[in-house]
Every structure is written in structure tokens, then in C-alpha cells.
Design a protein around this nucleic acid. Sequence first.
DNA 1: CCGTCAGTTGGACCT
DNA 2: CAGGTCCAACTGACG
Length: 555
Amino acid sequence: MRLSSQTQSLTRFSLPSFDMTSGSKSLMWFRKGLRIHDNPALEYAAKNSTHVYPVFVIDPHYMKPDPTAFSPGSKLAGLNRIRFLLESLVDLDYNLKKLGSRLLVLHGEPGNVLIRCLKEWDIKRLCFEYDTELYYQALDAKVQSYALESGIEIFSPVSHTLFNPAEIIQKNGGKPPMNCLSFSKIAGDPHWLSSSLSTTLSMIPPVGDVGNFEVSEVPTVKQLGYEDIQEEEPPIFKGGESEALRRLRESIKDKEWVAKFEKPNTDPSAFLKPATTMLSPYLKFGCLSSRYFYQCIKEIEKEFKNHTSPPVSLLGQLFWRDFFYTAGFGTPNFDRMRGNKICRQIPWNNDDELLAAWRDARTGFPWIDAIMVQLRKWGWIHHLARHSVACFLTRGDLFIHWEKGRDVFERLLVDSDWAINNGNWLWLSCSSFFYQYHRIYSPVTFGKKYDPTGAYIRHFLPVLKDMPMEYIYEPWTAPLIIQTKANCIIGKDYPKPVISHETASKECKGKMAAAYELNKEKNGMVSDEDLQNLRTRVEDQSQVTGSRRLKQKLI
DNA sequence: CCGTCAGTTGGACCT
DNA sequence: CAGGTCCAACTGACG
């Protein structure tokens, strides 16, 4: 199958005519997009080249063990995700070998390594998937500038997302759409919808001479310097395209389930038979093409007259992904509060002990703690469980800066995705997109709504198995003997909640209302001094200034 | 007469 | 579910 010409027109660079006579070496640079199916960059590299060098560069900064981190892993990534990435690379190598090629694993700073490759291997054409993420924007600019001045052709198609974020922003008058509905209206149907995506490649030209480059196999976790960690249970995700496609087939087997899917009705506490597809880690690394996933769902929806639709349907989930990618691409300082125009400026607390309690699953709320236990164990939690713990941290009882919570997620989640993670933290901390700060999603509310039997909590904290319901949702009422038992088994202090919901709610309301005023006044851009003033003003409860409307209501 | 600005209103938004 | 916030569209005073 051929990709449509439209897909290829997505490249940001003009394509010089190709000289077949001199022999042509292409370099396929893998970063995300760790797959063979629907991989326009790889397909383009394979076309008319005499040799293709499929390269992945392992950045020690990302992969090297960091013993000072709060969980096993590197400075930037938890071990779960590192392992997932390595497995994905092994699978990619395997799939490339079936097509007569192989994966060349190199080590070092990716930009420098790439430029050395282009030079030493006399590469004429560089292919890689376009990436909207800040990190890759900077990295790619460096590599591209070398390639351009050396006359190397660059092919960099958008294939990680359904739509091209830049195009969406342009269609929307230069700004990313700020809600899901307007996003889908502007996006419309993806242009490749009716064309057939390339799902198979018959062969890839052989790898050329690698000279005196040190090319390695995909390293094991152990070779990277990680101790063999005794796992009670095997990791729940196995990385790689093969596993991704297997899971995709598995989860869309029940066609009615696909057609009737409604995200808000899925149960975050379902763990034996998960309530969602759990394909997010595969989409994150591009082991699974979101466009191929889209087409599969679309096919099934055709068979049902009244299937669900975005934003709650399964397709809707892919729209949310693109929505956040677009917002992240079009918003300067998207991953920070300061200097971020769409982010409400709030004088967050800076209590490292409270943050650590949340991060280490010892808040005293079993629902919250059970979720955090799972996050550390599996590296994955249900979307609604993410809501619970994010709302808890930023608004419920702790009121800690969303950037801190974001950092913990970014490290621990196998599917941690820069745009989606930051977008959701902005959302749930009421800093952007959504602003109903008064609606405190307390662990009590969430526990009751989503886990009426307490099964989820009991599964992850087995000590609670025989505990009466009220002790699960209100642990501070538990008799000392049960508390002690829980402490012994979990090995942590199981404290009383720090602040009652009522107090937290009031405090939250005061801060958010003050932040609203400040944001209006300063048009979203505030100085450190402004924040400091706001903080002192808010902390002095007697002088809390509510919003104008709030004041009017009081009068 | 018209353009500007400040203030009001009502509908849409909500993973 | 309900309701705080946002954003168009509107209103009206002013020069």
C-alpha cells in the first residue's frame, strides 16, 4: 500500500530531486514512532535508497541510573518506562530484521551523535517523524541546520498525531482551540481518513557500512547499570509494536464495547479486567499509530447506528490527545505557571513534606494512597484515578503546585506524555481549560462514586481487606489497633488527614478567587512580587478579596 | 454620524 | 448533576 501524496506534503521542507546514480544512503532516525506500520518517514527512507541506516540514540541523561531519585530509574524516567522503551527497541529491531534490516543503537548526546552519523556515513537523506515537543524542537533544529548546510535532504512528516498541530492553530487564527468541541470542529476529518495507510513494508534496503562507529545491540536494564530488582509481579506492560498490535486487536474484538464506549462511565478501580484499552504507553512511544487506531475504530463504528461520539467515545480519547498536543505546541511555557498566558497565577504552597506524603502514598486517605501505590508499582493508573490524586494534591487537602505533581507523574508514568500530562495538570488544578475550583474532588467523593465496594483499595492495600467501609473512606475514625496494623504492613505512618475538607475548600476558594482577580488585572503575566503580594493577601484570611461576582452575591 | 470603550448579558463549556 | 468562568454579542455613553 502507498501513502497518499497528501501525507507526504506534510513535510516542512522542500524535497530536492534525488540522484539515483551516485548511490543513496538514507538515515532513519527513530525517537518516538517505534514502529513499522504507518511510518511515513521509514517508508520514504526505504523508497529508492540503496542503503538505509535505522538509528536510535540512547541518551545517558535519560537512561543512566540516578541513585538520588525518589524511585528506581534515571534522573528523568522511572524504571518502568525505561524498561518499556528498551523492550520497544528490541521489538523494533526484531521487526526490522524481518525486513532485511536492523536497528543501530548508538550512545551519547543525540544531536552530536546524529551529526557524526550524517558525516561519517555520507548520508544523503535524513528521515524522522516530526515532533512538536519542546525538547525535540530544539534538538531537531540543531540537526536540521547541519543537514541543510551540508545539502542533505530532510523528510520530517507529521505522523505521531491525527492532525498537524501547526495546521490546526493556523486554521483557528493563530491560537490553539481551548476546548475539545471547538477543536474537533476546526479539525474536521483527518485528510488521510479515506486513504489507506501503509500497514506493511515488504522490505527495507540493507544497512550500509557503519565504519568505525560503535554500534551496539539494545542494552538490557542490567547493562545500563540497574540492579536486578526483585519484582513481586511482572510488569503489566510489555513494550513494542508487536505487543501494541496484539493488544489493539484484543481490545477491539468486542465491537459493541468499542461502539458504546463512554469514558466517564469507565471504572478506574477495575483492575482484573481493565475498563479501558490501556494502549496509552504504546501511543506515547508510537509503537501504535494513533491514525491506524483511529481507522480501526472508525471501521467498527460504521457497523453501529447509534455509537457514542466524541468527546466521550473511544475516538474522542484520540481527539483529547491531539487537543493537548495542539495546546502544548501553540502555548509558550505550556509546562510552567510563570510566563504561561493560559495559566492562572496562584500562590501555591511549597510544602515538601506534604508533597512527599502524597508521592509516597501516605496521605491517610486509602483511595489516594492506593492509587499512588499502583502508580509506583505499575507506572499506569486510570485517567479518572489521575483526576483523584491530582485534584487532591492541588486543591483538596494539600494545595501544592501542580508543577510538583506533574514532575512526579512525568517520572512514574509509563505513558507519560509531555503535552497530555501538562495539559491535564493545568486542567485539574483549575489553572486552565477548567475553572470550577469549588468542586473539590475529595477522596471520599471519588471513592464512593467509583469504588462502592472498596475492591480497588482492598486489592492494593490488602491490610484493609476486612476493614469496615467507613474506616476505608475515613481512616482517621479507625480504631488505633487497625491503624497500627495498617502501619505495620504498609511500613509507613498512616496519619490523620492534614486538613479537613471544609477548611481546604474554603482556603481553595479564597486563593482561586484572588488569583482570578490578579489574572484579569495583569493579563496572565505576573511578577514574583505580584505572587508574593497575592500570597500574603490570601494568607491573611481576614483580607481575602473575592471576585466581583462573589462580592455582589454576598451583598 | 461613527468609532471606541467599558460594562452587561446569556449561552456554552465541563475527561 | 450544577454552577464558576469565558466569550461572543450587545448596550449605551461619550467625544
